[in-house]
C-alpha cells in the first residue's frame, strides 16, 4: 500500500511542469526515504534526478519499495486539475496497475480523485559519481532563465566560462554574438538575490541552450539555482524544492572534436 500526502501540492504540480517536456515516460521510485525519479531525455544527452524526502510529506506510507511507471504528459494533465492550494495525495494499492491522485481543497469542501494507468518502463538507473566541481555558481533562478532565453535567440550553444572576475555566458549565431557577464554580488539585501561563485579553478564548457532552457522550466520551484561545473563532465543545474528535496538536471557538454 502506498499513500503519500503532500500538503503543498503545488510543489508536485511545478515538478511535473518542469520535467514533462524533457522526459516522456519515467519510473517513480518510492521507498522509506522518499519519492524519487531518475530519467534521461530521449537523446540521452540530459538526465533529471528528483528527490522528495519522506519527511516533507504530511503523511508518508510506503509498505514496500515500489516503482511506478508513468507517462509524464498524462500525469501533468491530471495534476493541472489540482488547485495551487490543494493538498495532493498519491495512492496505489499493492499489485494494482493504476495510481490515484486525490486533490483536496484547503477548506476540504471539494475532493477530487483522478486515476491513471501505470506503464511498464524498463529504465536502468545510472550511477552518478560524486564529483569535485571546479566552479559552483549560485544565482537567482529568474536571472539564469533570462540569460538562457535571451542567448537562445542569438545562438544554439552557450560557452559558460568561470573566472575570478565572474561567470560569462557567450553565444554566436548568424545574426551576431552575445556575451553576458555576471559578477559575484553578495551585497544584496535579500540572500536569494546574491550571485555567489565558488571557484577553486577557472573552467569553460560548451552546452546546447535548448536543454538549459528546458531545465529553467523548474524556475518556479526555487528563487535560486545552483550550477556546478567541471571540465569535461556534465554540468549540474539544481533547484531546491522547499525543505523537502531537489530536482537536478545533468547535461553532457559539447566537446571540441
Amino acid at each position: 500500500m502506498l499513500e503519500l500526502r503532500l500538503v503543498q501540492g503545488s510543489l508536485l504540480k511545478k515538478v511535473l511542469e518542469s520535467i514533462k517536456d524533457l522526459v516522456n515516460d519515467a519510473n517513480f521510485d518510492c521507498s522509506a526515504t522518499g519519492f524519487s525519479l531518475q530519467a534521461m531525455d530521449s537523446s540521452h544527452v540530459a538526465l533529471v534526478a528528483l528527490l522528495l524526502r519522506s519527511e516533507g510529506f504530511e503523511h508518508y506510507r510506503c509498505d514496500r519499495n515500489i516503482s511506478m511507471g508513468m507517462n509524464l504528459g498524462n500525469m501533468a494533465k491530471m495534476l493541472k486539475c489540482a488547485g495551487n492550494d490543494d493538498i495532493i495525495t498519491l495512492k496505489a494499492d499493492d499489485g494494482s496497475d493504476t495510481v490515484t491522485f486525490m486533490f483536496e481543497s484547503p477548506t476540504q469542501d471539494k475532493i477530487a480523485d483522478f486515476e491513471m494507468r501505470l506503464m511498464d518502463i524498463d529504465s536502468e538507473h545510472l550511477g552518478i559519481p560524486e564529483a569535485e566541481y571546479h566552479a559552483i555558481l549560485i544565482m537567482p533562478s529568474a536571472e539564469f532563465a533570462r540569460i538562457c532565453k535571451d542567448l537562445s535567440s542569438i545562438g544554439d550553444t552557450v560557452v559558460i566560462s568561470v573566472t575570478k572576475e565572474g561567470v560569462k555566458f557567450s553565444t554566436r549565431g548568424d545574426i551576431g554574438t552575445a556575451n553576458v557577464v555576471c559578477r559575484q554580488n553578495t551585497t544584496v539585501d535579500k540572500p536569494e538575490e546574491a550571485t555567489v561563485i565558488e571557484m577553486p579553478e577557472p573552467v569553460s564548457l560548451t552546452f546546447a541552450l535548448r536543454y538549459l532552457n528546458s531545465f529553467t522550466k523548474a524556475t518556479p520551484l526555487s528563487n535560486t539555482v545552483t550550477i556546478s561545473l567541471s571540465s569535461e563532465i556534465p554540468v549540474v543545474v539544481e533547484y531546491k524544492i522547499a525543505e523537502m528535496g531537489y530536482i537536478r538536471f545533468y547535461l553532457a557538454p559539447k566537446i571540441e572534436e
Binding site: 544527452v45 545510472l126 545533468y250 553532457a252
Partner: peptide, 14 residues
C-alpha cells in the same frame, strides 16, 4: 566543431 556528447558516456549503468 563541437560534438554533443551523451550522458551515458559519463554515468555508468548500475
Amino acid at each position: 566543431v563541437n560534438q554533443q556528447s551523451q550522458i551515458t558516456s559519463f554515468f555508468s549503468k548500475m
